[in-house]
Amino acid sequence: MKYVIALVLGVFFGAVIFAAGMIYNPFISKQKLSPITVTDLQTITLAFSGVSTENILFTNDGRSRVDTYPEDVPELWERPIRQTSAMVTVMRDALNRPAGIGVKISSLSEKTRLFNGEMLVDSVWYVYLPGKGAFFVEQVENYWGYFKEVVYPAYRSSANTWKGNWLGDVTFGPGALATAKVTGGSGKFDGMDMHGVESLSVRAWSVARGPVSADGRLTIELPPVAIPGEE
C-alpha cells in the first residue's frame, strides 16, 4: 500500500514540477521585438480601451470572467460561438482624439498548443476612420506572455489582483514576423495590403473582473507609396 501512495504522490509532484517548468521556463514563447516598431515606413497608431466596460459594447458567452457591456447586451451562448467575443470601440489617435470606430471579433483558436507556450486566439478587426477609409485586420494572437506575467501572478496574489506595468505585442501571425495581415477596404486604404501589430498595456488585473486598467494599441504599417493623412 505504501508503494502505491508513494507512486501517486510522485505522479502528483511530477505534474506540479512540469506545470512550474512551463510557467517559469524563460525560453517558452519569449517575446520578440515586432518589426513594425522599428520600421522606416509610416505607421498609423490607434488606441482603444482594454477594459470591457469602457468600450461601446462587449459581449461573450456571459460566463467568462470579463463582464459583458452594457449589461442588457445579448450573449453569445450558442455552442458554435460560445468561445467567441465581440467588441465595438472608439479608436483614438495619438492625441487621444476619437479617430474612428473599430469592431473586433475573437475566438479561441484550435491551434492553441500550451506545450509550446501558444495560447492562441483567432481575431479580426474592422476599422473605419472617417475621411480616410476602412481596413480589415486578420491575426492570430498569443496570450501566453500575458497569462504568465499578469493572469497567473494575480491568481497567486493573496488579494487576487495584479498591479504593475505589462506591455506586450499579442499579435503572433499570420505574418512570418508575427504581424497581422491588413487589407484596405475603402477610401485611401482601398487596394492596400499592409501589416499590423496589436499590443496591450495592462496596469491592473483582477481574478474577479479580468482587466481593470488596460489599453490596447493597433499599429498599421502603411505601404511605401500612398500615404493617407497624418502621422
Binding site: L7, G10, V11, F12, F13
Partner: peptide, 11 residues
C-alpha cells in the same frame, strides 16, 4: 517508487 512516480508525472 516516489522518484519513478515523479518521472511518470512529468511525462
Amino acid at each position: 517508487t516516489f522518484l519513478f512516480g515523479i518521472l511518470l508525472g512529468i511525462v
